[in-house]
Design a protein around this nucleic acid. Structure first.
Lengths: 256, 256
DNA sequence: GAGTGGTCTAGACCACACG
DNA sequence: GTGTGGTCTAGACCACTCC
């Protein structure tokens, strides 16, 4: 065997009598791949080894590796490209930028966007934030406040909380200098890949200060979006409370 | 061959020189299964033939049928149950009722719901409705208006449009008599299976009459949800404009 | 025990990208 | 041409359900 983990033991376990908790081989392979992704063995945008190489490494057939990769691709952690290879998903790509932003112009036309950082400070985590981010209340969080505009029209007011331990060098200055989706920045600068997110949406009336920042009249109905984003292994890494202006935009969703 | 369609020609086409539009065998099988579903060969809740039977019918290997079924199961058109068979998805089942309703109580507790039909009438399709339902403006639509309450609290005001040709016997009386999700009724009474839906969401201020029906003060911020539901073959079959009260509920969504 | 879906394998061949 | 993912097959065996 080479220097990477063998799954022989796991195979035995999986194939042992039906008494033990049964887990199919390809699920075990999937877990190993996930682990390699989490540990950064392959970086976002890079290609992972070919199916045959992985099959050899794990001592399973190519079809079994294939099925593991299939699931990771279905979850958008990996991207398959016929003839080229299988790549680690990234937010640093024109095609999938703003992958998590569901706000769409009513007329469908793509609009140029710009971000204005209002604030970036470190604070002790408020209890509700700490709970959602799986932190202790004594932990420090980075709190970023910003306004996103489309065609010079303020449209989104975001309040963002991040574990300070992970996002060490993050400052208002570095944020202001950066152009592009935050998740792309998190990926390349802090090694944090956001993989999944959950949102809770309400309609609320804008408060005075919120209305001021969005340049609307106080009390206007706005969309309130609370998002928790997760990295590999379903670890929460960002809490975002956004206010969306929906007079010329809408939040789109597909049910199935 | 039996009396059902053979795919031999399709196979030849698919396997012919790379000049023609190439379509994998399992995709062709998928299309055939979809057709059978659409034509009602197997009804919602029923089991479809086993993988081996289907493989024999279509003259392909079991693995190829399997892959076709896999995709239909991933789209929630079919449901696999190990040891029992593969079943046509249905809204008539405790487990998946309100499958398309994303509104959730903030406290997570399930609440008893009741529906009050306000109105059910047939009208000439307004142009915007006709366009979304892929109808001609001269076509007739059924317009249903109802209020959904949770624990006696009015929470959702729905305005629903349906092609009148399809929903022939639908009246306020039959709707009032019925308990349960509308999609379950559509399925069992009108043979219409809703398979997918697209929603556009905005935050708006409730108008006077809307506020009256929801028992809130006029101008309150509410969630406006426009939903187009599709049946097999991506044919639009319902337009629904809903107003959701989100003071004690929220719209939940998962991004990935 | 019989039938169904689920896993795993091994091998052949096809479509696609790149040099 | 070579290497990658994608398809298709055939067969063995496993897990689950029901009788």
């Amino acid at each position: 065997m080479a220097d990477h983990s063998s799954i022989d033991d796991a195979v035995m376990a999986g194939r042992a009598a039906s008494s033990a908790a049964y887990s199919p081989l390809y699920q075990q392979i999937k877990a190993l791949l996930l682990q390699s992704l989490d540990q950064g063995e392959w970086k976002p945008g890079e290609a992972i080894p070919s199916e045959f190489e992985l099959a050899a490494r794990f001592n399973v057939s190519q079809g079994t590796v294939r099925k593991a990769i299939d699931e990771l691709a279905a979850d958008h952690l990996l991207i398959r490209r016929q003839g080229k290879g299988t790549f680690v998903a990234t937010h640093n790509e024109a095609k999938v930028r703003f992958r998590f932003l569901r706000l769409t112009p009513d007329d469908g036309k793509v609009k140029p966007s710009s971000s204005r950082i209002i604030d970036c400070r470190r604070i002790k985590a408020p209890v509700d934030i700490a709970r959602l981010l799986d932190l202790r209340p004594s932990d420090t969080v980075v709190n970023v406040r910003r306004v996103l505009s489309f065609e010079q029209t303020p449209t989104i007011l975001d309040d963002i909380w991040l574990p300070a331990v992970v996002f060490k060098g993050l400052t208002a200055e570095s944020l202001t200098r950066y152009r592009g989706p935050l998740y792309a920045l998190f990926e390349s600068e802090y090694g944090v890949s956001m993989v999944r997110a959950e949102e809770k949406i309400k309609a609320v009336a804008a408060s005075d200060d919120q209305a001021g920042l969005l340049n609307i009249v106080s009390g206007s109905p706005v969309l309130q979006v609370e998002r928790v984003s997760f990295t590999y292994g379903d670890r929460p890494m960002e809490l975002r409370r956004g206010l969306y202006l929906t007079d010329r935009f809408h939040y789109r969703n597909t049910l199935s």
